[in-house]
Computed example of a mutant assay.
Amino acid sequence: MNLNDNRLIIKTLRSGDQKVFSLVYASYYKPLCLFCSSYVSLEEAEEIVQDLMMYVWEKRESLVEDLSLKSFLFTSVRNRALNSITRSHITRQVYEEYQSQQLKSLPALDSCYSTELFNAYMEALHALPKEQQKVYVMSRYKQLTHKEIADTLEVSVQTVNYRIGKALQFFRIRLKDFCLK
């Protein structure tokens, strides 16, 4: 099938033809990753492109036949990369502000204590059951919403809420000696 026949490609995708989707995926994956890697790391670019391709497949029925698939894919990848950069920047700013406030409120904090706390935190993180650990990391480090996590893992939002709640409860128990009373 000719990828230049945009209308036919969209029409066939909308009908659920997996062979055409595979062709589109194979044809655009590397160029999209290369383009996206000009904004973010190659690893993150690959993840963004894979997520976009899954989105296209899941939403294929809503694709408009007049849509330029190539333009849509490249524009979407760029927007997703910029959103990722923004999320990372905001997360870093919040973390730096938090660190600054912590240092102001605890000027005599012993570096040994903070290292001990960090090590205890990492031990607790790695001791979490795998499902809870995965959801916690996606929420706290990748900054995904509970809905995005649920969609990615193909579970309900309630399951995500439950697993994060259990993870936080686990941390409270494991790190109770470090909490201020």
Score class of each variant (00 low, 15 high):
residue 1 M to R: 00
residue 3 L to H: 06
residue 3 L to I: 04
residue 7 R to F: 13
residue 8 L to T: 14
residue 9 I to G: 00
residue 14 R to M: 07
residue 16 G to V: 08
residue 19 K to S: 10
residue 19 K to N: 09
residue 23 L to A: 06
residue 26 A to H: 04
residue 26 A to I: 07
residue 28 Y to E: 04
residue 30 K to V: 13
residue 30 K to Q: 14
residue 31 P to G: 02
residue 33 C to W: 04
residue 37 S to Q: 07
residue 38 S to T: 14
residue 38 S to C: 11
residue 41 S to N: 01
residue 43 E to G: 15
residue 46 E to I: 05
residue 53 M to G: 04
residue 55 Y to G: 10
residue 56 V to G: 06
residue 56 V to R: 04
residue 57 W to P: 10
residue 57 W to G: 11
residue 59 K to W: 08
residue 60 R to S: 07
residue 63 L to P: 03
residue 66 D to I: 08
residue 69 L to V: 10
residue 70 K to V: 11
residue 71 S to D: 01
residue 71 S to C: 03
residue 72 F to V: 02
residue 72 F to I: 00
residue 74 F to D: 05
residue 74 F to Q: 00
residue 75 T to I: 06
residue 75 T to G: 05
residue 77 V to W: 04
residue 77 V to E: 07
residue 79 N to D: 00
residue 81 A to R: 01
residue 86 T to L: 11
residue 90 I to R: 09
residue 91 T to V: 00
residue 93 Q to W: 01
residue 95 Y to S: 05
residue 97 E to L: 14
residue 98 Y to N: 12
residue 100 S to T: 12
residue 101 Q to C: 14
residue 105 S to K: 13
residue 107 P to S: 10
residue 108 A to G: 14
residue 108 A to N: 14
residue 110 D to M: 04
residue 110 D to Y: 06
residue 110 D to I: 03
residue 111 S to P: 12
residue 113 Y to A: 01
residue 113 Y to V: 09
residue 115 T to D: 08
residue 116 E to N: 03
residue 116 E to M: 01
residue 119 N to M: 05
residue 120 A to N: 13
residue 121 Y to W: 15
residue 122 M to C: 09
residue 123 E to A: 00
residue 124 A to M: 01
residue 128 L to Q: 00
residue 129 P to L: 01
residue 132 Q to K: 00
residue 135 V to T: 15
residue 136 Y to C: 00
residue 139 S to H: 15
residue 141 Y to W: 06
residue 141 Y to E: 04
residue 145 T to A: 11
residue 147 K to E: 15
residue 149 I to K: 06
residue 150 A to W: 02
residue 151 D to K: 12
residue 153 L to Q: 07
residue 154 E to M: 09
residue 155 V to T: 11
residue 157 V to W: 00
residue 157 V to P: 02
residue 157 V to D: 02
residue 161 N to P: 05
residue 162 Y to L: 15
residue 162 Y to K: 15
residue 164 I to S: 05
residue 165 G to T: 09
residue 166 K to W: 03
residue 166 K to A: 10
residue 170 F to I: 01
residue 174 R to E: 01
residue 175 L to W: 07
residue 180 L to G: 06
residue 180 L to M: 11
residue 181 K to W: 11
